[in-house]
Design a protein around this nucleic acid. Structure first.
Length: 213
DNA sequence: CGCCAGGGCCATA
DNA sequence: TATGGCCATGGC
């Protein structure tokens, strides 16, 4: 049986079930969460989110001084840089009057470039926002996807965009599929495919080459 | 105690 | 293009 991205997705979906991401009440909360979770456990990002919950609206958040913001998001780590990144994001968001509906109408490529121009929003954060806040069908490349596919034995393209294009080009996926795929890869990495893996009961065991690097 | 976590920027070669 | 240092908390 040919091992493909499609087959891996099917296996993960059958095993873990629908993930219904992103865990946030609003698109705005989702995007703030995307910045807070950068290179940080979701557990710590949640603590920061809980602290700024009373300010989780662009009109309220822009009034906070950067120093106040930093203190509130302290549990997420890198709190000084993340406070600046949130400010940079808010500045961009305001140029569209914080109107999610308007931004959703923007062409996918152009919107991606605009997000990448925000200081503190790199490829992965931009793609996660495009997928979970702006409904663009996109494959999110992260270290988890790299680790999981590497251990299966795939030789993925080295650069971010080449990897993303390959998966998107070979999957014929819609919004719902890419939404679930990223969430499933994260869940799989956290439950089985950790740095020190738990291979017993792994749903991908038969297709894994055990390249535990 | 060290390792890791749902990255990105910047300087350098 | 591709490394390396830097940013920092909290769970284990």
């Amino acid at each position: 049986m040919e091992i493909s991205y499609q087959r891996i997705y099917s296996r993960l979906f059958k095993y873990y079930g629908p993930q219904k991401w992103w865990p946030a009440d609003t698109s705005f909360e989702m995007m703030i969460g995307a910045i807070l979770v950068q290179n940080t456990s979701w557990h710590n990002a949640e603590k920061a989110l809980a602290n700024i919950k009373p300010y989780l609206a662009p009109e309220l958040m822009e009034k906070l001084a950067t120093g106040e913001m930093a203190e509130m998001i302290r549990p997420s780590g890198f709190f000084n840089v993340k406070a600046k990144r949130i400010n940079a994001f808010l500045k961009w968001f305001k140029t569209y009057h914080c109107d999610i509906g308007v931004i959703k109408q923007i062409d996918r490529q152009r919107l991606r470039n605009e997000l990448l121009n925000i200081n503190g929003v790199g490829r992965e954060t931009a793609d996660v926002m495009l997928l979970y806040a702006f409904d663009k069908p996109i494959f999110v490349v992260d270290n988890y996807a790299r680790r999981i596919f590497y251990r299966i034995g795939f030789n993925m393209p080295k650069t971010y965009d080449a990897f993303r294009n390959e998966v998107e080009g070979t999957m014929a996926g819609d919004l719902e599929l890419f939404n679930e795929f990223h969430a499933l890869l994260v869940e799989h990495a956290k439950s089985h495919c950790k740095k020190t893996p738990i291979c017993e009961g792994c749903p991908l065991l038969e297709m894994c080459h055990q390249r535990l690097d």
